[in-house]
Design a protein around this nucleic acid. Structure first.
Lengths: 142, 142
DNA sequence: ATGTTTATGAAAATCACTTTCAATGTTCTT
DNA sequence: AAGAACATTGAAAGTGATTTTCATAAACAT
């Protein structure tokens, strides 16, 4: 899995004539080792604990690069922080977010997906993406 | 309908020991007369055209007040601007957003709602709210 | 009317990015 | 291996959208 992501990135870098750097490798390792749904700030803090010389802007730019390379995806929850989650080929999921402790649980529901497609079609929309989040209290918080 | 909203607000103001002001009345009128899904900026500009003395901060605070009073709801789309929509009792809807022209269409789908409840329950979540947005091209844009 | 308390407007402060720029690094060519 | 050519980095400045501060002005109870 990690091997696949690393290859995705190095291929992207080669294809675009970019350069492979120590910072990018380090940030990728931390991203792959981390929980899903990290904000820039969170990842930056983790990275900085071990690599105090890596700056916020580099983490920011590298995360954008991961998105372009297809190994991460941006998501926005109601807390106003952009988060980045891992992309696994052919997988789509939505989220349950605990409004108390912030826990994020992923789920898939093909029936909902299908209904969304139908709704879009019935309004004449050409669907590109969709997002769905359910907010509430997780088992631990009630 | 408007009468109901105005009462919601005046009741809230009374209950909380707040004060009823000309600005709040004016902003409420503009909000009720407006399209749904207004950003603070948009509403501020409309209000200011007729009432140049009402400041941005007042519109901002008043919209928050509407949310507390239960007659408006905040929504965030992928464009990074907070918008406020009208709350109508017992109504829930989701959104189709055109990624080209920004048009927002509302829809309701009870089957999806029910499936969402089931998903939440199956993960032990106590559901509070949810949101779902479908992004794509509207009929005019393709 | 008057005092008490809340609301307002303008400006300053925050927040979460996003960009700039001089200094470094990489990779490519000899 | 050296230098050229170009991309990347870190620190700091800049942005855009709020959010807060604070002195002044309005409400409302007395």
């Amino acid at each position: 899995m990690k091997r696949v992501k690393k290859k995705l990135l190095s291929d992207f870098i080669a294809r675009k004539g970019l350069k492979s750097t120590r910072q990018r490798d380090t940030i990728l390792d931390f991203f792959l080792a981390s929980d899903r749904h990290m904000s820039i700030e969170e990842l930056y803090l983790k990275v900085r604990a071990k690599h105090p010389n890596i700056g916020y802007a580099t983490v920011y730019r590298t995360l954008k690069l991961f998105v372009e390379a297809g190994l991460a995806r941006e998501i926005q929850f109601a807390d106003g922080q952009t988060r980045y989650e891992h992309v696994n080929e052919g997988e789509h999921h939505d989220h349950l977010v605990c409004t108390h402790c912030g826990t994020i649980v992923e789920f898939e529901n093909p029936v909902i997906e299908k209904l969304q497609d139908e709704v879009a079609k019935s309004h004449g929309f050409l669907i590109e993406t969709h997002k769905m989040e359910i907010y509430g209290l997780c088992p631990k918080c009630h």
